[in-house]
Design a protein around this nucleic acid. Structure first.
Length: 853
RNA sequence: GCCCGCGUGGUGGAAUGGUAGACACAGAGGACUUAAAAUCCUCAGGCAGAAAUGCCGUGCCGGUUCGAGUCCGGCCGCGGGUACCA
């Protein structure tokens, strides 16, 4: 008897697939196409369990589709530009390109043994000029179609390193290398006009039936459509007005002050003459740019001393304050505050001793406003103290609509629809990204590079010995000729956000070597992605940007109209998480936490310590595996010790794919044991010669058909863990069955085929062992016999008052009255009834009986 | 802060509004073995009970329903996103 040796089997069958070239995709007329795509990885250098989980899921889908008559495209590539490469350049002195390409090689070497059905002939890397030249060319198309523009926007500025920081590089408001207080600073930057598509991107969400509801909801909220009132408060000094936008115009009677953003034109102009305003603005500019940082920052205010008039009452004056929590990017950069009915406004008023206009709702037990605002839900009816907008009693929404109507009728305001979605800033002041193909000319201004001059290629000779963008200080790279006037000009040194790279790679995969960004015929055939799979952390940005990009590409003729929603079905897998081990005794020189790899940790009598030094460890429970936290677990050892099939089986079993899983080392061994057992079960069957036994054979075949049915359903609906549970159960059934050898071989064949998408190498081996020709990878998927799926009798639980008390076996199609009669004559029911008649009897055919006593 | 999600035995988890705990891991007991490993068999939510059985039980509080892990409302805890990590 041969033992299961993953190493031998896996190398052998991978070679066989290569030889038969089974995963190379090509257009074909005779089969429906199926494009399955996993989100491509960032080449960090090591694959981790999250990758294995992601690609294995995609592989199960791809392989199962191959065997159900589909022409499958399953490509792979690298999201290769990014910040980490520059950090490596700074920390280790390696050139970002060298680091990236080396990582790609390393990760490929770790990926290949997994036996994923990727078509490697289509491999792309976004940092390759052959990729980004098409991206530059599309940027020029977008420019021509007015989908790109420049304006000022804020960045995180490190005043010590004199450099722009990513949000990730701002920790508690300080630069991660310098430790200096970060400031917000304005730069002129490039933007995609994604906000022009707000309404369309919102509406089209409804059609995405095969996307998770939560992702659609998150995008809907992100786009954030709102209808509100836009109107102006006139300044009492006659020097103009303050325009505000509010989604709660119904609270206008409670207006207590006007707040403007520190970046509001009025605040800026006051700062020119008033040093206190300038100082306050500088104070507000401290800290990072994230919405979280802005929202959580301590609320600060500054009294301008100016006042405005209430639009409904000329004698009602309100003060104008500058407040740090008001964003210039949303609405008009100015608001009115209603402290009686908004907690944040109330807190602000209490802090700065501003007068608070009392509640204007007629509350049953009215008390003057204390430190708690009364916030009725938009759908709740409230009664007014005074008639307002012609209303006496109304819900918030009715009041909002009525107020807008009133304002429009009386001519002092306008109902306006706004979106939260902002334009997509794509400028990055960094080296390792796709250069933005424009030049700056003294005479012509900003001029697009000529397409024939693409790619605008990154220079290789750059240094990272000082902070900032190396492109800015490169001795020659910037110098170029103006494409318009032919005079001397300077290249743009901003590169593109890496989200641009990942917003169209799925389209490039359909024709990865085409001379244009896409090939109309190939894109027409392969698009859309039928099944897209990736981490839920991409629910908003990547997926929304891609939806925009597909529309923009369509406008420029790079994608057909049907491809504006590029992902027909989306599955968001959960993350593989792991505890983070923070050193509790030591920090870095500039006070940052030190994180240790799981393998550096030892357990000393229940206390976790650093193995080498014995330093105590603070365990941070469970978080997304992240390089910066050193909590990434490496799957390579599992593959080496147990083989790819074990790793694949293991990541699919036990946890539902959409759920986060906490990584544990235990379990891989168990998965391997099971595969060994399947190998032994099949080996034993092949060697056996048991005569047929009608009842045993029938029982086994019934189980086989049920298993085929359940596993097929599981695989097609991402219920991989449930499918694997069925396969475990069926292995048990098969191994204990007394059926004849002929039937057992049939059952073993089904088992091997059903396992094939998950454990393709082992399945190929056993397929051959069972005497089948060809590859199980291309053999037709088994189909269950419907007649074998239904049992003649069913076991019905009997509940008394909703609690299970007994069960009865009845023929499956027995009518309700019969079932009720049998149920009522049951001992447990008789006991519960104690001679009385039941109040009610519910019979759900084939399901349950509930007797109410 | 805001948006989204999740919470079930010692552990991972299963369960179209219909028998809560399938299938596994760890555990206990047994068979085989000189012994161990491997393998096979059995047990196993908690409490009470010899057992039959009864009561409790899906983060907490409340609601809808003949029936709630599942639907609704309110909390608590954890995770993701928060526009320059990808």
């Amino acid at each position: 008897m041969t033992r299961y040796s993953a190493a031998d089997i896996e190398a052998k069958w991978q070679a066989a697939w290569d030889k038969a070239d089974v995963f190379r995709a090509a257009k074909s007329g005779d089969k429906p196409k199926y494009y399955v795509l996993e989100m491509f990885p960032y080449p960090s250098g090591r694959i981790h369990m999250g990758h294995v989980r992601n690609y294995t899921m995609g592989d199960v889908i791809a392989r199962q589709k191959m065997t159900t008559g589909h022409n499958v495209l399953h490509p792979f590539g690298w999201d290769a530009f990014g910040l980490a490469a520059e950090n490596a350049a700074i920390d280790k002195g390696i050139h970002p390109a060298k680091w990236t390409y080396q990582n790609i090689e390393d990760m490929k070497a770790q990926m290949k043994p997994l036996g994923i059905s990727h078509d490697w002939s289509r491999e792309i890397a976004t940092c390759h000029p052959e990729y980004y030249r098409h991206q530059q060319s599309m940027f020029l198309d977008f420019l021509e179609k007015d989908l790109v523009y420049r304006r000022n926007a804020v960045v995180n500025w490190d005043p010590v390193d004199m450099t722009v920081l990513a949000n990730e590089q701002v920790i508690d408001g300080k630069g991660w290398r310098s430790g200096a207080d970060v400031e917000r600073r304005e730069l002129t930057q490039w933007f995609f006009k994604i906000s022009d598509f707000s309404q369309e991107l919102l509406e089209a969400l409804e059609g995405l039936d095969n996307w998770p509801a939560k992702v659609r909801l998150m995008q809907e909220n992100w786009i954030g459509k709102s209808r509100g009132l836009q109107f102006s408060f006139e300044r009492t000094d006659g020097a103009g007005e303050i325009e505000v936008y509010t989604t709660r115009p119904d609270t206008l009677l409670g207006a207590s002050f006007i707040g403007i953003s520190p970046d509001h034109p009025l605040a800026k102009s006051l700062a020119k003459t008033n040093p206190d305003v300038a100082a306050f603005r500088a104070e507000c500019a401290k800290g990072g740019t994230t919405e979280e940082a802005l929202e959580k920052a301590e609320k600060l205010g500054f009294d301008t001393g100016l006042t405005v008039k209430h639009p409904l009452d000329d004698s009602w004056e309100l003060p104008i304050w500058i407040a740090n929590f008001i964003l210039m990017d949303y609405g008009t950069g100015a608001i009115f505050a209603c402290p009686a009915h908004d907690q944040r406004d109330l807190d602000f008023c209490r802090k700065y001793n501003l007068p608070v206009v009392d509640t204007f709702f007629a509350l049953d037990n009215h008390k003057p406003v204390g430190n708690e605002a009364f916030v009725p839900p938009k759908t709740e009816k409230v009664k007014w103290v005074n008639h307002f907008a012609g209303l006496d009693v109304a819900t918030g929404q009715e009041a909002i609509d009525a107020t807008i109507d009133l304002a429009e009728k009386d001519g002092w305001g306008l109902g306006v629809t706004k979106f939260r979605l902002r334009d997509w800033g794509l400028s990055r002041q960094r080296y390792w990204g796709c250069p933005i193909p424009v030049v700056h000319c003294e005479t012509c201004g900003v001029v697009p590079e000529k397409k024939e001059n693409l790619p605008v290629q990154l220079p290789d000779d750059v240094s990272f010995d000082q902070p900032g963008n190396p492109l800015d200080r490169h001795p020659t790279w910037r110098q170029c000729t103006c494409p318009k006037c032919g005079g001397e000009a300077l290249r743009e040194t901003d590169t593109m956000d890496t989200f641009v790279d990942s917003s169209w790679y799925f389209a490039r995969f359909t024709a990865p070597r085409a001379e244009t960004p896409t090939d109309a015929e190939e894109a027409g055939y392969w698009m859309n992605v039928d099944q897209y799979i990736g981490g839920v952390e991409h629910a908003i940005l990547h997926l929304l940007y891609s939806r925009f990009f597909a529309r923009a590409m369509h406008i420029c003729g790079h994608l057909p109209a049907e491809a504006v929603e590029p992902f027909d079905a989306l599955f968001t897998q959960g993350m593989v998480t792991h505890a983070i081990y923070e050193n509790a005794e030591r920090r870095t020189d500039n006070g940052r936490a030190i994180y240790h790899y799981p393998e550096e940790i030892a357990d000393h009598d229940g206390e976790l310590v650093v193995r080498e030094t014995g330093e105590k460890i603070k365990v941070i429970p469970s978080a997304k595996m992240s390089k910066s936290k050193n909590n990434v677990v490496d799957p390579v050892t599992i593959i080496r010790d147990f083989g790819a099939d074990t790793a694949r089986w293991f990541v699919l079993s036990d946890s539902p794919p959409e759920r986060d899983v906490e990584w544990t080392a235990a379990g891989a061994e168990a998965a391997h044991k099971h595969l060994t057992r399947v190998h032994r079960i099949v080996t034993d069957i092949v060697a056996s010669d048991t005569p047929t036994s009608p009842t045993e054979d029938e029982a086994l075949l019934r189980e086989m058909h049920k298993t085929i049915h359940d596993v097929t359903g599981g695989v097609e609906s991402f219920g991989f863990n449930a499918a694997i549970a069925k396969l475990y159960a069926f292995s048990n059934t098969l191994s204990r069955s007394k059926a004849g050898t002929h039937t057992k071989r049939q059952a073993a064949t089904a088992l091997v085929q059903l396992m094939a998408p998950m454990t393709p190498h082992l399945s190929e081996e056993l397929w051959t062992m069972l005497g089948h020709d060809g590859l199980v990878t291309t053999a037709a998927w088994p189909v269950p016999d419907e007649a074998m799926l239904v049992d003649d009798t069913v076991t019905l639980p009997i509940q008394i008052n909703g609690k299970r008390r007994a069960e009865i076996d009845v023929p499956k199609d027995m009518n309700k009255a019969e079932v009720e009669k049998i149920a009522l004559s049951n001992d447990a029911v008789q006991r519960a009834l104690n001679g009385a008649a039941p109040k009610k009897v519910i019979v759900v055919p084939g399901r349950i009986v509930n007797v109410v006593v």
